[in-house]
């Protein structure tokens, strides 16, 4: 199993009378692309700010690379990059000047790195244009460029595709996937665009009202969200045998109550039903379930 890079244990953040984050525990392993999913005010940004050291937890601990001391966390953060809320930039400086300042501040000796990251995000031709004249999409790209500057091992990104046009969204998605695949960069990302997260993430953390509702891998989510027929018969054990022997079915699950989730032959339900009946098994329930990440999330939060 991959190394645990970030280990969050019982993290809480209290503001006056309100708890923004309640008892959150999760682990981020090397190589993950982990999506933080939740509505506005759920606590995603607060968690990211606590990971970044901007906000101090009220309770709980954060371990990064196995160390939770102040010094250890600071050293760990030097191996990571963060892009939280609207990317920060000096308005009256150009993209190049902003990145140059960050390069100096991070102690990166290679001056060419600024040009490299500008090229990666498509801002190399902005010249002396001041950031105050940038569009939202350009500012997001600058934020991503800053995040890439120090060649991080982990990238924590809060809604990085906000304000990007569809082409830009695809570019950033492909960039993040490439960074994860080729440079083995671990990514924690939050977004409201669940379809994008479903194309990007290997794991999901669902947050609602400051509470961690669930953590799922993409395989687990696909199982849950995959289209299937829920079959309940008068003799489920016999039904399984009939499906396997007579129809050669292999993709199915048997639930705790014995009912069957059938993931294949979805277009052949008449044949499935007839086969069961012909072998003395009477189908009592035969329902198609069709869920995606968005539907799953909406069901989880109860449509709030």
């Amino acid at each position: 199993m991959e190394e645990v890079i970030i280990d969050v244990r019982y993290l809480e953040k209290q503001y006056m009378k309100q708890k923004a984050v309640k008892n959150a525990s999760f682990q981020i392993r090397k190589g993950m692309i982990c999506g933080l999913i939740g509505p506005n005010g759920a606590g995603k940004t607060t968690i990211m700010k606590m990971l970044g050291g901007l906000v101090l937890p009220t309770e709980g601990r954060i371990f990064m690379y196995g160390d939770s001391t102040e010094k250890g966390l600071a050293q760990a953060r030097s191996r990571m990059s963060f892009m939280i809320e609207t990317p920060y930039a000096k308005e009256k400086m150009s993209a190049r000047e902003n990145l140059e300042k960050q390069r100096i501040q991070k102690g990166i000796p290679d001056k060419k790195r600024v040009d490299e990251v500008l090229e990666i995000v498509g801002l190399s031709d902005t010249g002396k244009k001041q950031v105050k004249n940038f569009s939202l999409g350009m500012r997001q790209r600058l934020g991503i460029a800053n995040a890439l500057l120090a060649k991080p091992e982990v990238m924590v990104m809060d809604e990085p595709i906000n304000g990007l046009d569809p082409e830009g969204i695809v570019e950033i998605r492909e960039l993040l996937l490439r960074l994860n695949r080729e440079e083995h960069i671990t990514i924690i990302i939050s977004s409201h665009i669940l379809t994008e997260l479903s194309l990007l993430c290997s794991d999901y953390i669902f947050i609602h009202h400051g509470e961690l509702m669930q953590t799922l891998s993409v395989d687990e989510l696909h199982k849950i969200c995959k289209q299937y027929y829920h079959i309940h018969t008068d003799n489920d054990t016999m039904a399984v045998a009939v499906l396997q022997e007579k129809l050669g079915v292999a993709e199915f699950d048997v639930e705790e109550d014995g009912s069957i989730r059938l993931y294949e032959r979805l277009e052949d339900m008449r044949l499935v039903s007839k086969t069961l009946y012909d072998h003395g098994v009477i189908p009592l329930e035969l329902n198609l379930h069709e869920a995606n990440l968005e539907q799953y999330y909406m069901d989880m939060v109860g449509g709030e």
């Binding site: 970044g52 901007l54 963060f82 809320e85 920060y88």
Partner: peptide, 14 residues
């Protein structure tokens, strides 16, 4: 004012 000070903490400076 533009929160760029946050980058210093986010970069690993204490």
């Amino acid at each position: 004012m533009d929160k760029t000070i946050n980058y210093e903490i986010l970069s690993g400076h204490s």
